[in-house]
Design a protein around this nucleic acid. Structure first.
Lengths: 186, 186, 186, 186
DNA sequence: TATGAATGAGCCTTCATTCAT
DNA sequence: CATGAATGAAGGCTCATTCAT
């Protein structure tokens, strides 16, 4: 079996991922690999040793982000207030996206397996919210995902300020609420 | 002042814009200028005579699209049913975007003046909808614009099918409705 | 239909082919395209405008050579002495190869159609030589081609002097002669 | 003088040469050094410790091959039938080449000393064959070497089938026979 | 001494832009 | 003015070679 990666290699791998995170966050997926290398303080070849292809690098980056995000969602699903956890997660993800073009790609790219994981957790959050009467029972998980994607894209491209971003989120979330107000009267 | 453009020059300009519309709609902003020229039936140099820079071409294209869209909105503002015109416009724009990678950029790019025009019309639509009790009075025009941007971006990137696209739109629009159901004025 | 190439373009195309001829003759097919450009006095992009791929360039080069060679053979087939034309052609091709790594590739590469043409002419030369009693009737055209390829390769790689080259050719040619001396006694 | 190589070092050296033999036989001299290392089960650095340069590795490989081939020829010179040994050797070497892109380089590369050895043995084979009346007395050793080189190159590049290869060899060998049929001494 | 990660030059190719025709 | 060829700066990627571990 392959031995655990050498210490310096692991360190470089991480520096590259971090640099890539920054570079692609700023410049989108067309940013250059050389720039990533430069920012990571390594030579171009090193990037390619770790990620044989630019696409591989992007994929790895997105996978990492997705895993973080999914973990965050999972925590909320376990420990959060069912009635609000989904909304919290939504706001949090959108907020984070505002500075990171990568998150967006992540939600739209061929990372089928990891995306499925996120969708699963979101589905859980959704079900709980519906059981708590906070979300309309007619809403489906793919719709929530679509809403998330949209909000993130918007947050990214729009150059919105924090206020606008939050208020826009709230409108979307309001759209999820039960048609005639929460079931448990009020 | 520059003389009025010669007839053939004007015709070329338009053919180029049309071609660019098609090409960038298909291939996104990374599509090549040569391809635009080819599709317009002119030589590369001609494209650059009319648009000194690729960015200029994109900007012109977006401006044109924006103007069309704004006109459409204006018509709805004048002739449509106040209670539904905003929603119609929203759905229509999003639907159109799904096949056009250019529209998206349009809503996010430094075209301050034309964007302001669209925002104005949208504001009109919004006000009327609010007066008709179809939209919550607390909603602001920039929020509607943000929602539009998001929905268009999402529709573009997500690879959604028409059904999902429409349902996602509806959720957003529901979020715009008055807090306690329609008509319960202020 | 496409217009005849512009004068300067045609000139460049030819300079590139000439340069490529020299460069690949010296350095083999691994020589760099940039070097070709440099030697042709054009920028790298120009090479690629004319030959979209390095492989295309090589193919064009070989095709050109092949056509020259085939023409030469055809002339010999028409005007030469049947008894010696094949031998002349053989010697001539090998001699030419001694300074040109390209000829060699040409005889071994996927240029199926042009190679077939050469094989055809060689077959003609062969048949005539056999009818004239200068070559053994058992010899087949593919064998002559194989002999040619071998001799060219050898001449190229061996670093032979002209004398050795010629003498080696003679041995091969002797191998083609009728088993018991020319049919027409002596 | 440098100390005798450590046992494991010597073993590595041999494994590398073996791997290089396989790799370059398959992929030609452009095959990568890393691939050699991988196939030898060592790290890249180890290859370079033993052979400071890729060229050195190739040279060593060819030297080894040459020595094997020379040994084979020497055996034939000692034990074989003088009248046929040269021909056997010729056929054997060509056949072997057909699957080994390295052999070819071997006959054409600056390995002066080892090549000289092979030439010597070939000269012996030749002399005996001439004394036995199987080869024309006018033939010289450098011509036989040139023939060998040609045939090997051809066998390699041509993509010939075994039949064509063998028939082509026979033609070359026929060219070596005495001018007026065998045995008709001098 | 072996390892295998890092280096960095070089290759092929693309494309926005310029300029001779 | 239009044409389309030429330019030249990147970009992604490979690989021989070096060097820290």
């Amino acid at each position: 079996m392959s031995r655990p990666m050498r210490a310096d290699a692991r360190r470089n791998r991480e520096r590259i991922l971090a640099a890539a995170g920054a570079v692609f966050a700023e410049g989108g997926p067309d940013a250059s690999t050389e720039e990533v290398a430069r920012r990571a303080g390594v030579a171009a070849g090193t990037v390619f040793r770790h990620f044989p292809t630019k696409a591989d690098l992007l994929r790895a980056l997105m996978k990492e982000l997705l895993e973080q995000v999914t973990a965050e969602a999972a925590t909320l699903a376990t420990e959060g207030d069912p009635a609000t956890a989904l909304f919290e997660f939504f706001r949090s993800l959108v907020r984070r996206t505002a500075d990171n073009r990568t998150v967006v790609g992540m939600l739209a790219v061929p990372l089928d397996q990891p995306i499925a994981s996120l969708t699963d957790v979101v589905a859980t959050l959704l079900t709980r919210a519906q059981q708590a009467g906070a979300v309309d029972p007619g809403v489906r998980a793919d719709e929530v995902m679509a809403l998330l994607t949209s909000a993130c894209q918007g947050a990214l491209q729009g150059g919105w300020d924090a206020g606008l971003r939050d208020r826009t989120c709230e409108i979307m979330l309001r759209g999820l609420k039960p048609a005639k107000g929460p079931k448990e009267s009020r």
